[in-house]
Simulated assay, not measured.
Amino acid sequence: MTYVVTDACVKCKYTDCVDVCPVDCFREGPNFLVIDPDECIDCTLCVAECPVEAIYAEDDVPADMQDYIELNAEMSKIWHAIVEKKDPLPDHETWSTVSGKIGHIER
C-alpha cells in the first residue's frame, strides 16, 4: 500500500509533509503535490503533517477521490522531487476549504 495526495492539496500546496518524508517520495507540480507510489514506504509520517488532511492511505481514499490514485502515479513520473518545505501558494487560505478541485490541477 502507498499513500495518496488528494483534493485538499490542489491550489494550496502545503509542504509540511515533505519535511518529514524519510525517502523523498513527494513530487511537485505547479499547484499540487503527489506521492510517488514506487518510492513511498508507507511510514504514515506525512498524514499527520498535512494541515488540510489531503493525504490518505490508498485503501482509504474516499470513493469520490479515487481518480487521485492514478493521478499520483502518473504525475510522479513527470514532476520533480521536492525535498524541502516551501511556503504554500499565495491564495491557499481561499482554496483550503473548497472541494472538487481536480479540474484545477495544472500539469
Rank of each mutant, 00 (worst) to 15 (best):
D64Q: 12
V98L: 02
Y56H: 12
A81L: 06
F26T: 08
G103A: 02
E70L: 05
E39D: 13
C46W: 12
C40P: 02
F26N: 05
V83M: 03
C9M: 11
P90N: 09
T94F: 13
I105K: 03
D87R: 08
L89R: 10
K85C: 00
D91M: 12
M65D: 14
Y14Q: 14
V23W: 10
S99V: 12
T44D: 14
A73N: 13
G29M: 04
S96A: 10
Y68T: 00
E39N: 08
C25R: 07
V98H: 10
Y56R: 05
A57M: 10
W79K: 00
I35Q: 11
M75S: 11
R107A: 09
E53C: 09
P30G: 01
A73V: 00
C17L: 03
D87M: 10
E84D: 15
D36K: 10
C50S: 06
W95D: 07
I82T: 05
D67I: 01
T2S: 14
D91Y: 13
H104Q: 15
C40K: 05
D60P: 01
V98D: 03
L89P: 01
A73R: 15
Y3C: 00
L45D: 13
A8C: 01
M75A: 10
V4N: 01
E84N: 12
Y56W: 13
D19S: 15
I41S: 02
C50E: 03
W79P: 07
A54Y: 07
M65T: 02
P37H: 07
D38F: 09
S96H: 09
A8Q: 14
S76V: 03
D42Y: 08
K86S: 08
T15L: 03
F32T: 04
C25N: 14
G100W: 06
N72P: 06
V4S: 06
P88A: 04
P37T: 06
K101F: 09
K13R: 08
P90F: 13
T44M: 11
H92Q: 04
I102A: 05
V18H: 10
Y56E: 00
D16V: 01
E106N: 07
D36S: 14
L89D: 11
T6G: 05
